[in-house]
Design a protein around this nucleic acid. Sequence first.
DNA 1: AAAATATAGTTTGATCTCCTACGATCCCAA
DNA 2: TTGGGATCGTAGGAGATCAAACTATATTTT
Lengths: 179, 179
Amino acid sequence: MAQPSRSAQNRARRAAAEDTPRLRVLQGGAPALRLGPLGEALGFHLRLAQEASFAAFARRTGESGLKPGFFATLAVIHENPGLSQTALGNAVGRDKSTLTPRLAEMERAGLIRRGRSATDRRSYALTLTPAGEEALSILATHAAAHDAQLDALVGPEIRAAFLDALRRLNQGLEPEDDE
Amino acid sequence: MAQPSRSAQNRARRAAAEDTPRLRVLQGGAPALRLGPLGEALGFHLRLAQEASFAAFARRTGESGLKPGFFATLAVIHENPGLSQTALGNAVGRDKSTLTPRLAEMERAGLIRRGRSATDRRSYALTLTPAGEEALSILATHAAAHDAQLDALVGPEIRAAFLDALRRLNQGLEPEDDE
DNA sequence: AAAATATAGTTTGATCTCCTACGATCCCAA
DNA sequence: TTGGGATCGTAGGAGATCAAACTATATTTT
């Protein structure tokens, strides 16, 4: 199922088989090595692109003194006031144990409140403080600029298809409990 | 097979424009929270997709007792015998200090050799041992299966465009030394 | 109602990663 | 040839993350 595209494969193979070192993956003036089949692997490039994206976003948020991880956290709390830490973790794709210190820090920073739920005394009910809303709006500005940059690189023609593909990957790669 | 599907595109766009909270990002029977603008952000979905891809690949490689990170490492050494650790790091997108313990482990495991370069006594000349070639071929099999799964999810029609977009992201998001 | 089971959040330990500092070595220029 | 600066690999510190174990509370079963 799903072929890597003959022409691309051949191009990569040629580059690998001979000496054409044109698959420059990471710039920086480096000589650019051969990657072989790796140069055509979706997973590999997915990783590189994601890391580049994260680093670029971190550069932006760094200016404001806010951590990149705060954005999704604040955004989801904003959209779902009163949610639990576990629910938040599921939404942002982080284990609940990862959120423990992050949320503690954000509470200390006055960005969120962790009210005790009335119905379940085990869980917190997360909400944003005014300072949290403020931080969110700052981060949202950075995020919008960042995503505009990504959009420009991806290109308007395929943006929607690109995003859909990412969604399919995320949904289709779930750890089948069986199998 | 597997189309981006107009309808899905439109559904997503509608959801983002208004308040329809139907963007279930992480399944698992969770209630599916609202994501707001986050649900349309390329960077967010890029991260989720990459993490899902990595986890899926790790599940495969786990069966063989080989670490996922070994694959790119072995593959690049195979393609570029004699290269240095720094050059390897550039190719695989990892800091040289990250590779130090990994390569030490791989050497201990008998997968690679770290010969001293004749021309530069600071650097190592990395090569694969027969066991390393063996490990690479096992991992390459897993990688091929994994990428086939990714291909199937992305869909053959847009695979090439998708990969190109990832390359553009990786290349276009470099940390401008100026600015 | 009591016991068994499940869930929320925390803690701890392990892994992966980067950055910075460092000694060894290389290279270029004076 | 002799500095000074760059580069190679390593060490150590910091941060993010997950998984497993734990406590407290909920829910379900008996």
